[in-house]
Simulated scan of single mutants.
Amino acid sequence: MSDSSDAGRPAEILLVEDNPGDVRLTEEAFKEGQIENKLHVVTDGVEALDFLFKRGEYADAPCPDIVLLDLNLPRKNGDEVLEEIRSDADLAKVPVIILTSSGAESDVAKSYELHANAYLTKPVNPVEFVETIRSFNSFWLSIVRLPCDQR
């Protein structure tokens, strides 16, 4: 099962990642794992907020069921994006999973202070990275029940 609601529709996932290699690995993990959810990709914090708030070219963007958020982003970092998500009444209930290369305890603590739902450190090894994405899918999109019709 890889849907986000009782209606059986595929989950809308927003990946906020500026590293093209990590984007490619994530897309490959979804493809190899036959994960049929819709993956939307933006490459910086400003673009992420435009997507989430449906501004400019993202006026018709869907509200994501889950956000996978890197911390080290250009223009606005992941902490700033997370803070804006959590300060908006409509977006506050969207699960945000930090997916970053930083294993610093201060980054982990800050993410949870800003109400991230989970913190995943990206493995350097591509095979382990793909397994991390598969584990994310297994837990967040198969076991966890997500809120329906968030916006």
Rank of each mutant, 00 (worst) to 15 (best):
V46A: 13
V81I: 00
D107F: 05
F139Q: 01
A109C: 10
S5N: 07
S4N: 07
D149M: 14
A116I: 04
S111Y: 00
D44N: 15
Y119A: 12
L73M: 11
G103W: 00
N72W: 06
A59H: 01
D22T: 02
R24V: 03
R145E: 13
N72C: 09
G8E: 04
V124R: 04
T100E: 05
E57M: 11
F129D: 09
D88F: 07
F53D: 06
T121D: 04
Y112V: 03
F136D: 10
V124L: 12
R75A: 03
V46M: 08
I98H: 03
H40S: 13
M1S: 13
Y112G: 06
L73T: 11
T26Y: 02
L99I: 14
I143F: 01
D70Q: 09
V81E: 02
D70V: 12
L15V: 11
K122R: 02
L49A: 02
P10M: 04
D90Y: 00
I66W: 00
L73V: 08
Q34F: 13
A92D: 04
K54I: 10
E17V: 12
E84D: 09
G45P: 14
R55E: 14
S102V: 14
E28R: 10
V41N: 05
A29W: 05
L71Q: 03
L141E: 06
S87E: 14
E105M: 13
V124A: 12
S106G: 07
I85M: 09
G103H: 01
F51L: 04
L99R: 11
I13D: 05
K110W: 04
P95R: 03
V41D: 07
L14N: 07
R9Y: 03
E105V: 15
D65H: 15
A118N: 13
N72I: 10
G33P: 04
L69N: 06
Y112F: 15
V41R: 04
S138F: 05
T43Y: 08
L25M: 13
A11L: 04
L49Y: 08
R134T: 12
I35S: 06
S142Y: 02
I66A: 02
P95A: 05
V41C: 09
E131F: 06
